Simulated assay, not measured.
Amino acid sequence: MSQDERNLEKKSDHIQLTSGDIAPLWGGYFSDSMVNCVLKHFLHTVEDNEIKPIIEFALGLTIEHLEFTNKLFKEEEFPIPLAFTEKDVNLNAPRLFSDGYMLFYLRHMGIAGTVSYGMALASSSRQDIHAFYNQNLKTAAQLLEKSTAILQSKGILTRSPFIPYPDSVEFVHKESWLNGLFGDRRPLNAVEITNLYLNIMKNSIGQALMLAFSQVAENKDVIAYIVRGRDISSKHVEVFSALLRDDQLPAPTTWETEVSNSKVSPFSDKLMLYHTVFLAAVGMGNYGASLAASMRRDLTAVYLRLTGEIGTYSDDGAELMIKNDWMEKMPGAIERNALLSL
């Protein structure tokens, strides 16, 4: 039976998935299956009894998401991605990350979820998918709240820098307020400070993750690629930290010491490479948002330069995935030229 005939058999009120529905569902399936493997390793190696329930909560969310998408794709007769399975995680591997790092990873899962599910909600059109992402937004916020509360109770929650309250409302009267490349440079404003701080934090999480991946990966090309990403993250942390220090503002600490000395990999090289490329893609999105919110010209130049560097790095990672037959093709428009009889 052809696809057209199958579509005719469906209920007359059935709404086919649009590209705006497919994109977040398909991408989300990959990220959920990947994180599911990471969280299983966390759950098998965590020692802190306060952190364990939050890992279980987050792991339960990934399972719910995968079950929903699996069921939906089957109903739509849509191919289910291979993504990542139990073959991509080794539960017998020793502990690779500290409990503190696990907790920060969970917090950033919550942050990323509130952003990505909000975007998915905006792009989707079907009522059942709207309900799915509405629920995901709520649970991502819960994960963020739970992990933040534990970090705060343990005294390891890092906050963005404090700034003094203004005495009154002020207006900008000089174009030099935009300067930064030459001449007088005004102090950073609250939005610029916040973005620098968040970009340091996210790079630090990625830096430690890539440090861990690089010491347990087996494929030499994958190791070299991950080491390169680790070094890029380290450099970006220093660039952003220097901008904060120029205004006598503190920069958050990094997390390299939270990685163990284990050489036994909990994850497949495929998963570790995908996770690294995924972080690069997220980084480009973060830098784009920061660029749009920055009004100092030197910050604009910094974000443009660093975004270009990550873009090249991300492309190289995609090429490496293709080389190893690890990249599944995202659904897209019909290749019309391939249908021509020439």
Rank of each mutant, 00 (worst) to 15 (best):
G229A: 08
I129N: 01
E170T: 07
N203R: 10
A217K: 05
L304M: 15
L137Y: 04
P79E: 02
A140I: 00
F240A: 06
V237P: 02
A140C: 02
L61H: 14
S314K: 01
L249R: 13
E218G: 07
R107C: 00
T307R: 10
D221Q: 15
R296I: 03
S341V: 12
F182T: 11
L279E: 05
S168L: 10
A292D: 03
E47D: 12
P53W: 02
L91R: 01
E328F: 04
K220T: 09
K220W: 03
F84A: 04
Q215I: 08
Y165H: 06
S341Y: 14
Q16W: 04
W255R: 14
I51P: 01
A333P: 06
Q135M: 12
C37A: 07
I51H: 06
R228W: 13
I51T: 02
D13H: 09
H236I: 14
P53L: 01
Q16G: 02
L72E: 08
S168A: 05
L304A: 13
H173S: 13
A83N: 06
D298A: 08
S147P: 01
Y287P: 09
A141I: 07
E192K: 06
Q152W: 07
A93E: 02
S294I: 05
A318H: 03
A251F: 12
T139E: 10
L144F: 09
V172G: 09
P164V: 01
T194S: 12
L151E: 14
N49D: 12
K138E: 15
N189L: 06
M1K: 03
M102P: 07
D4S: 12
E238I: 09
G332H: 01
D167C: 06
L244E: 12
G20I: 00
V35M: 14
R245L: 15
V191A: 12
R336Y: 11
S290E: 04
H173V: 15
F42S: 02
F162I: 12
M201N: 03
Y287D: 09
S260M: 04
N337S: 06
D315E: 10
E50R: 11
D167A: 04
M109V: 07
R305H: 09
M119R: 05
D88Q: 00
K10F: 11
Q215V: 08
S241P: 05
A318I: 09
N136T: 07
Q3E: 10
V115W: 13
D99T: 13
A242T: 10
D298F: 14
E170M: 10
L96I: 11
M109L: 14
A208P: 07
N286M: 15
D315F: 13
A318K: 05
E256R: 15
S168Y: 05
L209G: 10
L209C: 13
R245D: 14
Y105E: 08
E47S: 13
V264L: 13
A281Q: 05
R186P: 03
M272T: 00
T253V: 11
R228D: 12
R336I: 04
M321H: 03
V237C: 08
L39S: 05
M327V: 09
P252R: 10
G60E: 01
T148S: 06
F240K: 11
D184Q: 12
R95Y: 05
N286H: 15
A251Y: 11
P161N: 07
